[in-house]
């Protein structure tokens, strides 16, 4: 994983729950190609049309609160989000995102610092954030080494998969 994310900011308020990130009526879908089509549909039905790979989501407190559905993280990974920066995260969403290799960065005050459409550059490991539109900089909570390790493996899946393969190979 690249430690740097850089893109346009899409800004949301606080308590954006998983139903807004991924409406419950689409939970039956399992294919990423289908799941990605409904990203953020509960708040902005045109989101997927406007969003480009690498763009960044900025939000207030408790982003991803609500249900444990992994679809919320899958859909954001599906649209190719560069990073999600929020004042705080719902904890299950936070775990799901890390497990899928989606960088989720906690930064107090981020919503005052970035406006919709600003260009943002963020160092995922150190938590340094630059608003390239205004020239301002901010500091997020640096990533714990344990979590950084998961992100750098591309998520928990490739990590466990490698362990499993090593185990299987050892038996063969």
């Amino acid at each position: 994983m690249n430690n740097i994310a850089q893109g346009r900011a899409f800004v949301f308020g606080k308590n954006i729950d998983t139903d807004q990130i991924y409406p419950g009526c689409f939970v039956e879908l399992t294919d990423v190609e289908d799941v990605r089509k409904h990203a953020m549909a509960g708040v902005d039905e045109d989101f997927v049309k406007k969003f480009k790979v690498g763009d960044i989501i900025v939000a207030g407190t408790n982003f991803g609160c609500g249900s444990s559905r992994e679809h919320a993280a899958i859909t954001l990974k599906g649209v190719g989000v560069g990073a999600v920066i929020a004042e705080s995260f719902g904890r299950i969403f936070f775990r799901n995102a890390i497990n899928l290799g989606v960088p989720v960065i906690t930064c107090k005050g981020i919503t005052a610092f970035v406006k919709a459409g600003d260009r943002v550059l963020v160092n995922i490991e150190t938590g340094e954030i630059k608003n390239e539109t205004t020239g301002n900089t901010a500091h997020a909570v640096p990533m714990s080494p344990y979590i950084m390790n998961i992100l750098q493996s591309g998520g928990i899946k490739p990590m466990i998969k490698a362990q499993q393969e090593a185990k299987i190979n050892a038996v063969l």
């Binding site: 444990s68 992994e70 299950i92 497990n99």
Partner: peptide, 29 residues
Amino acid sequence: TDSHTTTHGAFGAFSTGVGATDLATIMIT
């Protein structure tokens, strides 16, 4: 894999909800 797994704190357990990949990790390890 359910957010309201906090319910079982009523019995003095440590209980919490996770997503699918976390649960799959438990199924393996």
